[in-house]
Structure formats: structure tokens, C-alpha cells
Amino acid sequence: MTLLEARDLRVEFVSRGRRARAVDGVNLSVAEGEIVALVGESGCGKTTLARTLLGLERPVSGSVRYGGTPLAYSSRALKAYRREVQLVLQDPTGALNPRHTVYEAVAEGPRIHRLPDEGERVASALSRAGLRPPERFFGRHPHELSGGQRQRVVIAGALALEPRVLVADEPVASLDASVRGEILALLLRLRAELGLSALVVTHDLGLAWNIADRVAVMYLGRIVESGPVEHVLTAPSHPYTRALLSVLPDSPAPVVLGGEPPDATRVPPGCRFHPRCQVLASGAAAAAGVDGLCVSRPLPVLPSSPGAHVACHHAEATMLTGRADDRS
């Protein structure tokens, strides 16, 4: 069952007369017990989309749905919703008040929601997050903990509310390589033990490969490719996905993208990736007869259904050619 969903979501910001289309038509879903990775370079709209799914930003159109019901934006409705859908921030040092003890940090959520058995909730959450015995950490302050322990405290703070979905924004970006695997293993264990769903926002495709069931690749405010993680990361169809994958250590050669970095105030006509597209620049799009479409015809918003989807004129033409060859 789909638990958290964005339907044709659009979020805009206006500054000095310029309108930035930060999220420009996104369909995205997270099912019960599923981990979805949202990947893309900085500035593509990942964090804005995550904030909108949490109710921290309001869309100009489209909707956020939880359990099939559109999100309401009254204070009471948002408070109830945020007990079910919890945020795990990128920087555990910035997320924790340096004056609060670990106990106070984890107990903050249950106190806001006036939940019973505070001490038991805090101890259970810390234990599930891998800080055992939990009582040993109650009186400690953030500066007395390692980076990995601080991230576990942040996760425990979310778990204390017994949520059904975690939205994790770059959850291991600030951690040492030796600790990253431990936090990823923790998220997988929480999914197995508690049935938690998660949306993991990251620029790291290696992380997506290790933790996600599905991956959605975002560029300039829109999902340009999505599907099962094995399909997207082993046989990417979109040239932007191939460029992202090319920087991984085992890639044969990096793809250097030309043109300007994406600017949400100036979305180009046609395919929004075409000014930087290596397929168009190499002449492969022209050989397939779609170069005119690339620069003039916009691509439709991809659906949120579980299958593999791509928004690329060249990929569509290639698939059609392959089907014709199969029939012949």
C-alpha cells in the first residue's frame, strides 16, 4: 500500500521578481516497508521536495497524500502528521541542542505530543538506534559523543514517536566512511524490525545502491528517471543518470557535463537537460532523429508507479527502435 505520495507537486519561490520553479511537477510514492532514494546534484530540488512532503513548504499546486488522504495544513493536522512522518537531518551536530542531554533531546518529541511513559520511550528509542545500554547515554551532551553516536541520537529522537515513515536528508553525508555503513545498516534493520518506510535524499548513488528498493533521479525540479534500484543503476536510460553514475570509482570514464548548472528561474524549453546533454552534443540524438524534439518539445511528468520510467526523447526513440528490431 502506498503510504506517502506526491501528486503533480509544484513548489515555487519568488525573489526580486524572479520565479524559481524548485519542484516543477513531481509524482513520487513510498510504499509500506519500502526505502526510496531520491538522488541528484545540489540545487535540483531534492531538499525542497522533502520539506514539502513533511509539510514544511506548501505547494502552489498538486498535493501531498498520506495513506491516500491529502495533507491538511492546519496546526493540529500537521502536528498529528509529523508524528507519523519524521525527519532525520543531515548534520547531527546542528540538529542537537548542545545544552540538552541525550535524554532531553530524545524526549522532546514525546513531550510535545504529550505521550505517556516518557522514560520507557526514550530508553527503547535509544536501544533501537544502537545506543546500549541506553541509560549510559541519558546524561551525556552532544560534544561527548562521536559523530555516529550523534546521528543515532537524532534517529532515536524520531523513533521515540513511533513513526511509520522517515524522511532522511543526506543521513550519512557528514560522517566518516567507517561509520556510514553502520548507519545504513541501522536504517535497514529498522525497516526489517519495525516495518518503517523511508525516503532517503542523497547525492550519493553508492548509498542508493546499498539501501534503496527504488530510486528516483531528479534534475531541475523534476524526476527524469525512476525505477527499481538494480534497473536504474545498472542500465540507466537517461543521460543525466549515466553522468551521475560515471563518477563512481568503478566507472570506466567520467562524463563531463557542459553548459551551465541548472537554474530553477530559467527552465529551458524542450527537455530541461538538453543544454548539458552529452547525447545531444555528441550527435547521437540527431542520428536518432530526435534532436529537434530535445530542444523544443517538453517531456511529460513521470508517473509514480513502481515500474521503470524515463523522461528522455532519445531513450524513447531507442526503445521504439529496439521493439521494431525485435518484431522483425
Rank of each mutant, 00 (worst) to 15 (best):
V200C: 02
L196G: 12
D24C: 03
M319R: 04
R150G: 01
Y81D: 06
L166R: 02
H309T: 06
V60F: 07
V217P: 09
Y219A: 05
G289N: 09
V60I: 07
E41D: 02
E84V: 07
R7Y: 02
A80F: 04
G17V: 05
C44H: 05
S251E: 01
A72E: 09
R164P: 01
S74T: 15
G33C: 06
G206F: 12
H100S: 10
P252L: 15
G55C: 04
R191E: 15
P261V: 14
T69E: 08
G130P: 13
A129W: 00
P92Y: 01
A192H: 12
D176I: 12
D213W: 07
G227L: 07
R164A: 03
A311M: 01
A107D: 00
E230W: 10
G227F: 10
R297E: 00
A324M: 13
T2W: 00
E41I: 02
E193N: 07
H309M: 06
T318N: 01
A264Y: 10
A287E: 15
A37H: 08
R214S: 11
R128P: 05
R10N: 14
Q278D: 11
R189Q: 10
G130Q: 13
S124R: 14
A77P: 13
R65S: 07
R164K: 13
H274P: 03
G67I: 08
A37N: 07
A286M: 10
V200T: 01
A208W: 13
L207P: 12
A216E: 00
G94Q: 03
V200L: 02
G195M: 13
R164S: 03
D213E: 12
P142C: 08
G206C: 12
D263R: 04
A243T: 14
D24H: 05
R82W: 09
G25V: 06
I112V: 12
V256E: 05
G307A: 02
T93R: 02
R297G: 01
N97R: 14
R16W: 06
Q90N: 07
R128I: 11
V172T: 08
E170Q: 05
G68W: 03
G130E: 14
E118V: 11
S304G: 14
V23T: 11
L161M: 11
E118N: 06
L186F: 12
A160F: 07
V255W: 04
R65Y: 06
G322P: 02
S63W: 13
G322D: 08
S75P: 14
S42G: 02
R58M: 02
V179T: 13
P262S: 12
L96R: 04
A311P: 00
G289H: 14
M1R: 15
T93C: 00
V39P: 03
L53S: 03
P239W: 01
C271L: 05
V256Y: 06
K79F: 07
P303H: 06
S63L: 10
L159C: 10
S127N: 05
E260I: 05
L188M: 10
V247F: 07
P261C: 14
A287Y: 04
L131F: 05
R323Y: 08
V232H: 00
V201W: 02
S63I: 09
G147K: 13
E32Q: 11
G227S: 14
V229R: 06
G109C: 04
A37Y: 09
I155F: 04
